[in-house]
Nucleic acid binder design. Structure first.
Length: 606
RNA sequence: GGUUCCGUAGCUCAGCUGGAUAGAGCAACAGCCUUCUAAGCUGUGGGUCCCAGGUUCGAAUCCUGGCGGAAUCACCA
């Protein structure tokens, strides 16, 4: 039993004895003692003063005495106002260290879905959708946040015992890809990634820009010549009409159009693969909108027959959600073609049929909050059992100093470029510090990659997903302070110490903890490490990798303070030296596992 | 206009289900490398936690109302 539970039980019992009243277990609030007070755990006694009819100090004193008597791991206490600060025995902390220092999986939970004793519900997987790119443009900084967040959340859920299925939903059809196709057909002269030595997604993205540029010219001319509004001009522009016609031909399965479409998407996927691989993300399954929208269309038609939806005179199909304050929502156009919502209805069903998940998490920007409210309601209206299983993990936008990224203003931060820059900065900084002697060229390249990507990933993941975040391209991402490289550096530093310890030292050290009394810094660090499994659980529960990121930073900071003040290997007292070695060992595991849960690698040297 | 989210130091961000004197980093300034990696450590300055009420023994945290910002309310995705 955890000591916190033990204390809570004694407190509840004690209050029952004194007052005859049952206390609400949630009012027994144990927190770690603040640094400026003596003690390890603090109980807030204010909630109990009323029923015990005594002053806060008296209540704290009473509970303190009882706890001291009944719980052997408590060796003392002090009372400050309504706070009871308890001091745990060195033995408690040393037991913890001895138990976990050799545990490579410290912080991870056992796999619940493989546990035969678990309920069938707990064994069901969680599906996490992220990335979800369009095939007309390369990935940018916004996608980076999405991918890193989705991947880290998947790792967190896996790390806490869930079976996770990572899925990508590629939006490979629609007017946007037709625009790229049209521009390529009209102006491309057969250009291919091979002929131009461009990444496939970049090539297709460039034609999207060509389309928009040429369209702009036509629109401007139309507005000037005919004096019509921009909106009308966009509709009338020949290029726009051709793009529409291309879409219709695509939906009609015109072989010529399908061939171009297939070819261009293939180029894009090859490009995306390179980017995903570099980013370090991967998927268990990829859905394509071109393969799911038909199912969505069927489900909507069924819903219409069943009376869940209604048809307008022009033949379009709508859901009436006005009773939920959500207005009406189009589900099928008059010409029978589908919209985004139609497609999402289809994929939800497909996903449910494929995996029977207990939860379906969608990592999608907060600009789509409304879309998911509607989706859940529509599925609910259809009586779909999985409507309640849908969870929109809504995250904030990445903004630039001048606001959102706008392709028209050329302020989009390209994912590949950004990763290149980060790695280049990592190389430059590392070379300046000159600590890589003895590393092969390949090792060095790998190190630059690990540091550059670590800096980028940590920068993104340390921010609470819900919040918008700012990225300033003018200032490169920092490598000092609360950053990925700082944490990686701390890891490398500890590895260096562990390498220098004579072989077999660690094993021998487990036996020699008896009689050690950790000093202030050591205990701070131990207490911090003790929190790790709880932090991981909370982070998984809240789907917030930021919790882990900020925690790991605290660990690294506290280790560096300890490292600065005390010697590990040069400590003359063998017992203390062994203890510090184990402390370092557990710290390195915590950093490595914590970073791994974020999808960030840590180097052994840097 | 309706709905949702956000507002904490000059800047970027923490602050867990309400708990003690609100914390880091960056930037600025001042120190610390013949000792296990100085991408480190220490110190100084820096706050009306947007504002006003309310609930509470106790509010940055919860409620109400303002103010400011963002998103959304598409036959775009």
């Amino acid at each position: 039993m955890k000591i916190e539970e033990n204390i809570a039980a004694v407190v509840a019992e004690s209050i029952l004895q004194e007052s005859g009243q049952q206390v609400d277990p949630t009012t027994i609030l144990l927190q770690k003692t603040r640094k400026e007070f003596a003690g390890d755990l603090t109980l807030v006694v204010f909630p109990f003063v009323k029923c015990l009819k005594r002053s806060p100090e008296q209540v704290a004193e009473l509970l303190g005495q009882t706890l001291l008597r009944q719980i052997p791991q408590i060796e003392g206490y002090n009372v400050v106002k309504g706070f009871l600060n308890m001091v745990l025995t060195p033995g408690f902390w040393l037991d913890f260290l001895g138990r976990e220092a050799g545990n490579e999986r410290f912080g991870y939970a056992s796999a619940k879905h493989e546990d035969p004793g678990r309920s069938s519900q707990a064994k069901k997987p969680v599906v996490v959708e992220f990335s979800s790119p369009n095939t007309n443009k390369p990935l940018h900084l916004g996608h980076i946040r999405n991918n890193l967040l989705g991947y880290a959340v998947s790792l967190l859920l896996e790390g806490t015992g869930n079976q996770v299925v990572k899925v990508n939903l590629v939006n490979d059809r629609g007017i946007h890809i037709c625009k790229s196709m049209l521009a390529w057909i009209r102006f491309g002269q057969g250009e291919t990634p091979e002929s131009s030595e461009k990444k496939g997604d970049k090539l297709v993205g460039d034609y999207y820009v060509v389309f928009e540029t040429k369209l702009r010219q036509q629109v401007d001319a139309l507005m000037k010549d005919k004096g019509i509004s921009e909106e009308e001009a966009r509709k009338e522009a020949p290029l726009m009409q051709e793009a529409r016609s291309l879409l219709r031909r695509w939906e009609a399965r015109d072989p010529e159009v399908l061939a171009v479409w297939k070819q261009m998407n293939e180029w894009v996927y090859q490009g995306f693969d390179v980017t995903y691989k570099r980013m370090g993300v991967a998927f268990d399954k990829t859905y394509y909108e071109s393969e799911t929208y038909l199912l969505g269309r069927e489900i909507v038609s069924e819903g219409l027959r069943a009376g869940a939806f209604y048809e307008k005179e022009d033949g379009s199909v709508w859901a009436d959600l006005s009773e939920y304050e959500l207005n009406e929502k189009l589900l099928l156009r008059a010409d029978g073609t589908s919209v985004y919502m139609t497609q999402d209805i289809g994929t939800a069903q497909l996903r449910y049929d494929d995996f029977l998940p207990r939860k379906m998490i969608y990592v999608v920007g907060n600009e789509q909050n409304h879309h998911f409210d509607v989706l859940k309601k529509v599925l609910d209206t259809l009586g779909k059992p999985y409507a309640a299983a849908i969870h929109h993990l809504s995250y904030g936008m990445v903004e630039l100093p001048q606001g959102r990224m706008k392709s028209r203003e050329g302020t989009v931060v390209d994912a590949d470029d950004l990763m290149d820059e980060m790695v280049a900065t990592a190389r430059k900084t590392t070379e300046e510090l000159g600590k890589t002697q003895g590393l092969s060229e390949a090792d060095k390249q790998e190190l630059y990659r690990v540091i550059g990507l670590g800096a980028l990933k940590y920068f993104i993941l340390k921010v609470d997903p819900q919040k918008n975040m700012l990225f300033n391209p003018e200032e490169s991402i920092d490598f000092n302070g609360n950053t990925g490289p700082f944490i990686q550096y701390t890891h490398a530093r500890i590895c260096s110490v562990l390498r220098k310890a004579s072989p077999g030292r660690l094993k021998h050290a487990y036996g020699s903890l008896e009689g050690i009394s950790p000093n202030g810094k050591e205990k701070e660090l131990l207490k911090r490490l003790h929190e790790f499994p709880g932090v991981v659980l909370e982070a998984a529960h809240e789907l917030s990798p930021a919790r882990v990121a900020n925690y790991v930073y605290e660990v690294a900071r506290e280790f560096n303070q300890f490292y600065h003040d005390y010697s590990i290997l040069n400590e003359p007292d063998q017992g203390i030296s062994d203890f510090r070695l184990l402390l370092s060992q557990l710290t390195v595991t915590t950093i490595r596992n914590g970073m791994a849960l974020l999808g960030i690698d840590v180097p052994e040297r840097m």
